[in-house]
């Protein structure tokens, strides 16, 4: 079995994280921003799996499971917030909520 180079997998995770960051910074639709956060969390999990594979230890996968449970809790709360946001402002544009009042 050919070993996958460590740097290549880490570069891949960095590229995915950067794509998520760019999406978060450029999009103003709150649904797309939540999706970009998911991409970034996934890239972080990928790095943990790469580490787990590099040292053949289970700890990286354990951390990945924690990231997974954190992401699911975050998505549940975030989507509930989006539904409330849409009810209040009738749009998904985050600039509509730029004022704190009300």
């Amino acid at each position: 079995m050919v070993e996958i180079p460590l740097t290549h997998s880490i570069v891949l995770a960095a590229v995915l994280f950067l794509l998520g960051l760019v999406g978060l910074l450029t999009r103003r639709n709150i649904l797309f921003m939540l999706m970009s956060v998911e991409i970034m969390l996934n890239a972080a999990g990928l790095v943990f799996i790469v580490g787990s594979s590099r040292w053949a230890q289970a700890d990286g996968q354990v951390m990945y499971i924690f990231i997974l449970s954190m992401a699911s809790a975050e998505v549940a709360v975030g989507l509930a917030l989006i539904v409330q946001f849409y009810k209040k402002f009738n749009t998904l544009d985050t600039d509509a909520a730029s004022k704190l009042k009300g």
């Binding site: 997998s9 996968q61 990945y64």
Partner: peptide
């Protein structure tokens, strides 16, 4: 990368449950 359990969790929880929520 030698993590079949994490791969299964990724498909079941991320691609399954979280995307269905979205």
């Amino acid at each position: 990368l030698g993590a079949p359990f994490a791969a299964a969790l990724e498909v079941i929880i991320y691609a399954g449950a979280i995307m269905v929520l979205f």
